[in-house]
């Protein structure tokens, strides 16, 4: 059985998210007198719009354009071969100028898109690029993008319901409006903690799948190492003033809890110890 650890974690996190959603649904049914069918339809529509809009905005935000086969035949050949081996349709390949070496996947199995930055292609060697591509294809194959949209959707629905519940039970004074906004934000953060946890684990799984696909974890480990080493030099030149206050953002166990990605050093270590 593939990805037993992931499936077990998904079962736990999925149950927790479902519990949050169920409470929100019951509250909506109670306050607005909506039938269950309408609550479910509204939820599906909400998440569906988020998915469609998210994909469109992700591509638009980086100014991604199609990377044609004539422009990069080698890259297309590698993506096609990896996709075939992973049992998914070849995703659309796009390129963008992001200012930093980066790559990401959007969409689902059968309608996926992988975007790579020009800087990434310039920075990495061919086998390292292949490692990165394999990692992104693994995200599509494992439906990671869809799962994250679903998680975000549940968190948003629960937050909106919490916000309205506070508003509708209050006196509509300024403190109530403030309380509603704060409760909405804190509720979303609480639910997202569980989504963050599964997101971090999915990164490890995508790393492991990529390494299995290309036969070694070394190229992806080298790619991560090269990129993070380059980032260190740049970051020290950027302002440390803002970062100095962000004590829960950059270091310590709490920082890991609030991250969507595991520490790069740990990923490199795991890739090399395969």
């Amino acid at each position: 059985m593939r990805h037993v650890g992931l499936k077990a974690r998904m079962a736990v996190v999925g149950s927790i998210l479902f519990a949050f959603y169920a409470v929100a649904a019951v509250v909506v049914m109670g306050i607005f007198d909506w039938p269950l069918a309408l609550v479910l339809l509204g939820s599906v529509l909400f998440v569906g719009v988020q998915y469609k809009l998210g994909k469109w905005m992700a591509l638009r935000s980086v100014g991604a354009e199609d990377l044609t086969e004539e422009r990069a035949p080698d890259l297309h050949y590698r993506v096609e071969s990896l996709a075939r081996d992973m049992g998914i349709d070849k995703p659309r390949l796009m390129i963008a100028r992001m200012g930093v070496p980066n790559a990401f996947a959007v969409g689902r199995k059968g309608a996926g898109t992988v975007v790579v930055s020009e800087e990434l292609l310039r920075t990495l060697d061919d086998d390292e690029v292949e490692g990165v591509l394999a990692h992104e294809l693994a995200h599509i194959a494992n439906r990671d993008v869809v799962m994250m949209v679903l998680g975000q959707g549940v968190a948003s629905i629960v937050a909106i319901v919490a916000q309205w519940a506070v508003l509708l039970t209050g006196d509509n004074d300024i403190a109530d409006f403030f309380l509603a906004i704060v409760v909405g934000q804190l509720t979303q953060m609480l639910v997202m903690l569980f989504v963050f946890a599964i997101s971090r684990y999915r990164e490890y799984v995508a790393d492991s799948d990529a390494a299995a696909e290309i036969g070694s974890g070394e190229p992806l480990a080298r790619a991560l190492e090269k990129i993070s080493r380059g980032a260190e030099g740049r970051e020290s030149a950027v302002d440390d003033q803002a970062a100095a206050l962000c004590i829960f953002d950059d270091r310590g166990g709490l920082a890991n809890l609030l991250s969507t990605h595991p520490p790069v050093e740990k990923r490199i270590e795991r890739l090399r110890s395969r």
């Binding site: 988020q50 905005m57 992700a58 959007v106 993008v145 998680g151 975000q152 963050f196 997101s199």
Partner: peptide
């Protein structure tokens, strides 16, 4: 998360 690409 889930709305914008990672590492933007």
């Amino acid at each position: 998360l889930g709305r914008r690409p990672d590492g933007r």
